[in-house]
């Protein structure tokens, strides 16, 4: 399923046939002022698929996934999440945000709330769950990310790796249909990257739909269903990890891989 194209146009990164599409992005274009940051991006993701987006910094990877939950506004193209098209309609935006969990490079935990309050805030206020249910689910996911004993601490009392795992638990407790990871390990000390990746690998194996922007090639190779390579706002090459890391077709892909591997 390798697709190649000339360097000047973006490659279509359609999800494999037969799957149930949960995210559809078509001809997406975005500018930051004069700067054309995303060019004709077409990408779809099936349920339970893990898509890893890689590429040099400034290639538009983060902007792409931030467009999906409207943290960035796109100017052209169509984004559909779980059958809901993203428009200027606040109701639609909120609906999509409820169904997409996001994990940030800088964790972005709320420092004035405890770990438990961080996690249960949105389920109680947005999903309108009872507190007991929210706390029960929160404990379940804290267990899952391996830090059940930290529930009553404040984020400032945790290490970076622990904070990122809380952030993952916070996003998961909302029971989103899709998880977006925006360079989740880039701000971590090398010795704690492993614990966060391990959590992510487990999630991927459980069949959670994920789009992961990362520089961790090991992770891409191990759990990625597809790898998308972006450069200068375009999708340059798409393929299975096996194809991608052993037999890349595009010059730009080869040059990027040669630098980081």
């Amino acid at each position: 399923m390798t697709v190649t194209a000339t360097a000047s146009t973006s490659v279509r990164a359609d999800a494999p046939h037969g799957g149930q599409k949960i995210i559809e992005i078509e001809d997406l274009n975005k500018w930051f002022g004069e700067f054309h940051v995303l060019r004709d991006i077409t990408l779809s993701v099936n349920k339970a698929e893990v898509v890893v987006v890689i590429g040099p910094s400034g290639s538009g990877k983060s902007t792409l996934i931030r467009c999906i939950n409207r943290l960035e506004e796109h100017q052209q193209g169509r984004i559909v999440v779980d059958g809901v098209q993203l428009t200027d309609d606040v109701k639609k935006i909120d609906q999509i945000r409820r169904e997409t969990g996001m994990v940030f490079q800088q964790f972005n935990l709320f420092p004035h709330l405890t770990v438990m309050e961080n996690i249960t805030l949105a389920p109680i206020r947005v999903r309108r769950w009872k507190r007991s249910k929210a706390e029960e689910r929160a404990r379940y996911f804290l267990e899952k990310v391996g830090i059940p004993e930290q529930a009553n601490k404040y984020p400032g009392q945790l290490s970076g790796g622990q904070q990122q795992r809380v952030a993952i638990a916070r996003a998961l407790t909302m029971e989103p249909k899709v998880m977006l990871f925006d360079e989740p390990t880039s701000a971590l000390d090398p010795e704690v990257i492993g614990e966060v990746l391990e959590v992510m690998v487990n999630l991927a194996r459980e069949g959670i739909t994920m789009i992961v922007v990362t520089h961790e090639m090991g992770f891409a190779r191990e759990v990625g269903d597809r790898v998308v390579f972006m450069d200068r706002g375009q999708i340059v090459e798409v393929g299975t990890p096996e194809h991608f890391f052993t037999n890349p077709q595009e010059e730009r892909t080869k040059s990027f891989l040669s630098k980081i591997l």
Binding site: N69, M102, Q106, N108, H112, L121, V126, R170
Partner: peptide, 30 residues
């Protein structure tokens, strides 16, 4: 208050008002 706080709150589906009241303002107050 860090821009990321607002983004995290919005990405969890909290409304503008909830974001300001529950996330931004308590931190700004300090």
């Amino acid at each position: 208050v860090n821009k990321g706080q607002r983004e995290a709150s919005k990405s969890l589906g909290l409304s503008d008002g909830q974001t300001f009241r529950l996330v931004i303002f308590p931190q700004a107050l300090r």
